[in-house]
C-alpha cells in the first residue's frame, strides 16, 4: 500500500471517528433547547448539511470555470462530483428541515421563504444532471454542463442567503446564526406603535417588580383581525429575558431584549423557535465540530466520486479509440 493510500485510509478513519463523536455529543453532551426540547438537536445535522451544499456548489463552479479554460476532462469530473455532493446535501438539508418544521411549526411544509428557495435550488441543480444525461457527445456535454453550472452557481447565494432574508415574515430562525435586519427587533417608548414581521405591536407599559421588569405589549394580527396583550419579562440583574409569551395562534414568541426604565422604553423582538440555539457553549462547540466533520465527509465523497467519473471517462475514451 502506497503512502498516499495509507494517508487516505487514516484520513477516512479520522473522519469516521470525528463524526461518531459528533453523533454521540449531539445526544449526550448538548442540553435540550428551551422551547424546542430535544427537537433542537436536529439543527446540529441540518445546518452543516446546508453549509456543505454551499461549499459543494462553489467547488463545482470553480472546476466548471477551470474546464472551460483548460478543457481537461478531469476538471469536468470534479465539477460533476461536487455538484452531485451538493445535490445530496441540499436534499438532506431539506428533509431534516422538514422534520424540524413539523416539530417546531406543526407542519412538514408551509411554503416558508427558506423552504421555497431551497426547493428552487434543488430543481436548478437537478436540471444540471438532466442536461448531462440528455447529451451523448462527451465534449459538448462537458462544455454545456460547465456553462450551466456557472449559471446555476450565480443563483445559489441569492437563493440561500439573500431571498430568505428579504422576506418580511419567515418562521426560519435566521437569528440563531446571523444577525439580520429582520432579527434586530424594535425599540419602543411607552405608548408607541411599531411592527415586528407582519404583527403590529404597541408598548402599553413597563412595570418593575424587584429585578424583574414586565412589559405590557398589545399585539395585533394583520388586518387587526385579533388582538392580545402579552407580558414578556426581563431580568435587570442578569440582563436577559425571563418570560417569552407566544403570539396568539402562532409559535412565534415575544422577547424583551433590553429595558430603559428612565427613558420609558424597551427593545422587543419576535423570535421563531430555534432562535438563540447557539447561545449555549456546549451546543456551539458541537455545532462547529459537526460543520468541520461534514466538510471533511464531503471532501471524502468528492475525491472518491471524481476518481470514479475520471476513470469512466478514460475507459469510454479508450473504447472510442479502439473502435
Amino acid at each position: 500500500m502506497g503512502m498516499a493510500q495509507r494517508l487516505g485510509s487514516i484520513g477516512k478513519l479520522l473522519v469516521g471517528m470525528w463524526l461518531a463523536g459528533v453523533t454521540i455529543a449531539t445526544f449526550v453532551v448538548i442540553p435540550p433547547y428551551q422551547g424546542l426540547g430535544d427537537a433542537g438537536r436536529i439543527v446540529i445535522v441540518h445546518v452543516p448539511t446546508a453549509w456543505v451544499a454551499v461549499i459543494a456548489f462553489t467547488v463545482s463552479a470553480v472546476y466548471s470555470a477551470l474546464y472551460l479554460r483548460r478543457r481537461r476532462p478531469d476538471d469536468d469530473a470534479k465539477a460533476t462530483a461536487a455538484a452531485e455532493g451538493g445535490l445530496i446535501f441540499t436534499l438532506l438539508a431539506t428533509l431534516t428541515g422538514m422534520v424540524f418544521s413539523q416539530i417546531a411549526w406543526g407542519v412538514f411544509w408551509n411554503w416558508d421563504p427558506r423552504q421555497v428557495t431551497i426547493l428552487i435550488l434543488l430543481l436548478i441543480y437537478a436540471a444540471l444532471f438532466a442536461l448531462r444525461s440528455a447529451i451523448d457527445e462527451p465534449e459538448r456535454r462537458r462544455r454545456l454542463a460547465a456553462v450551466y453550472s456557472l449559471f446555476a452557481f450565480v443563483t445559489m447565494p441569492f437563493l440561500m442567503f439573500v431571498a430568505p432574508r428579504m422576506a418580511e415574515s419567515t418562521l426560519h430562525p435566521n437569528c440563531a446564526f446571523i444577525k439580520g435586519s429582520d432579527c434586530d427587533g424594535i425599540t419602543l417608548k411607552i405608548g408607541h406603535v411599531g411592527q415586528l414581521g407582519d404583527q403590529k405591536v404597541q408598548l402599553l407599559g413597563l412595570e418593575r417588580q424587584g429585578d424583574i421588569v414586565v412589559a405590557q405589549v398589545k399585539v395585533s394580527t394583520p388586518g387587526l383581525a385579533s388582538e392580545a396583550i402579552l407580558q414578556p419579562g426581563y431580568d435587570l440583574a442578569t440582563r436577559s429575558y425571563t418570560d417569552r409569551p407566544t403570539f396568539p395562534g402562532q409559535r412565534f414568541t415575544l422577547a424583551l431584549e433590553s429595558v430603559d426604565l428612565e427613558r420609558g422604553e424597551a427593545r422587543i423582538n419576535m423570535e421563531a423557535p430555534g432562535s438563540g440555539l447557539l447561545a449555549n457553549q456546549r451546543t456551539l462547540w458541537v455545532f462547529l465540530a459537526s460543520n468541520i466533520g461534514f466538510t471533511m465527509l464531503f471532501v471524502w465523497m468528492f475525491l472518491v466520486r471524481s476518481q470514479v467519473l475520471s476513470l469512466e471517462a478514460q475507459i469510454a475514451q479508450r473504447k472510442v479509440a479502439l473502435a
Binding site: T23, T26, F27, L36, G37, D38, A39, R41, I42, V45, T49, L92, L95, T96, V99, F100, I103
Partner: peptide, 14 residues
C-alpha cells in the same frame, strides 16, 4: 418522542 424523531433524522442522514 422528540428525541426519537431527532435520532431517526440523524440516522436518515448517515
Amino acid at each position: 418522542s422528540a428525541i426519537y424523531v431527532s435520532m431517526a433524522t440523524v440516522l436518515l442522514v448517515w
